[in-house]
Design a protein around this nucleic acid. Sequence first.
DNA 1: TCACGTCCTTGATATTGATCAAGCTCTGAT
DNA 2: ATCAGAGCTTGATCAATATCAAGGACGTGA
Lengths: 232, 232
Amino acid sequence: MRDEDLQEMRQLPLFEGVGAAYVESLLRSAFVQRFPAHVELVHEGDPADFLYVIVQGQVEIYAGYRDRETTISVLGPGNSFIIAAVLLDRVYLKSARGLTPTRILMLPAEAVREGFAEDAHFARALAVDMALAYRGVVKELKNQKLRSSLERLANWLIAEEEKGGSTGKLEIPYDKKVLASRLGMAPEVLSRSIAALIPYKVDIRGRHVQLNDREALLSLARPVPTIDDPAC
Amino acid sequence: MRDEDLQEMRQLPLFEGVGAAYVESLLRSAFVQRFPAHVELVHEGDPADFLYVIVQGQVEIYAGYRDRETTISVLGPGNSFIIAAVLLDRVYLKSARGLTPTRILMLPAEAVREGFAEDAHFARALAVDMALAYRGVVKELKNQKLRSSLERLANWLIAEEEKGGSTGKLEIPYDKKVLASRLGMAPEVLSRSIAALIPYKVDIRGRHVQLNDREALLSLARPVPTIDDPAC
DNA sequence: TCACGTCCTTGATATTGATCAAGCTCTGAT
DNA sequence: ATCAGAGCTTGATCAATATCAAGGACGTGA
């Protein structure tokens, strides 16, 4: 691994509070790899050989069943994926592919498991990480089971706008069909849902969105902390 | 806490591999409480004051939004709930109520967090627990997003039958309306789905179920390890 | 600038699931 | 044994979402 890469890796959120020496030894067995867009990085059902951390680019986490496919989430720089499988030495439950060209840090699963067994700080960091990830999925499950597609879209827009600093504007960060799959609907339904938001003064052109009547949209979306607040 | 209760608690899966001394000190601040059926044990949105472990009875974990409600899971003796909220000192994301009269071990959240911070074994046990729970929800999310109600029912039947030792018979362990909510459908849809399984030689009378053509049901359900295998 | 392909939208229609209403069944209490 | 109530089923209808098909918009490379 190049020295400047190493420098960068050390600061990953995953390693916060973990002894420098241990991070060092973990990183010694790791390497950074570039992948072109659209290639599958991991395939569900395969044994967890590596823990992946995104350095650059966007990664879609998805899962398939029969001829269907759904995206679970889309991750960016700083995010890691499939910690749980690595920690438990099990099979991946989800697949991953780059939506863009990516640079990815790959940590051999064996090293991560050793770190977990030997370094208490790292073990705690992993536990906290797992707990946060767990709550994230629970929220998503509630989102799916309790809301209609239109409500999911409305809430996603509000959440995304707030993530971008509550400017009233936002960019959809990937293809609409990916967003549709993330939100759990067919692309056609997303199109129609977008059209259905015009009365709420939502103005979508391409990937550029403007929310011109926050109140109206909020009254439709009705966000609640226990589903929508990322800090909750 | 009564002495015989203490004896029982020590053997909970949560404490596996944790030093006896530490378990002891944890349990000193804990107590066992009886609740009548149908009372709400925890309410989503409340701060996590206790970690709950079921000693006796059935507990429904559910969540609400507007006037809707969905059950996330139904737990039995030995299961604990809301570890993540306790560990992170956050608010509960789900509510819980007894489906039957229950006996429940309540561990003050503060003590659990101390244990996590000070006992490395306990921290690891929690991390593993969180990882398992995480994978459970991911599977459930896939189940919801990728399958129809009929498929979810068919797969639930198979999983439940295998849990009971693959005898071809099984008991639905709670009211059908709870099962419907657990599977993410209206009670009427569950009724009709059950009727739709008659051609597959599924015989349901009350809570008693018999699977008379496993092959046929399997070809409809098409279970896959990455959603349905609890050991995966 | 044009042409191609991909992505998105729109329309028509089918399917799935929800809701409303009524009746039935089982159980538990009197 | 009888009655009340809860839980379940069934029918009719409606709403939400998926699917199929076609056309339009847009960006990219020649």
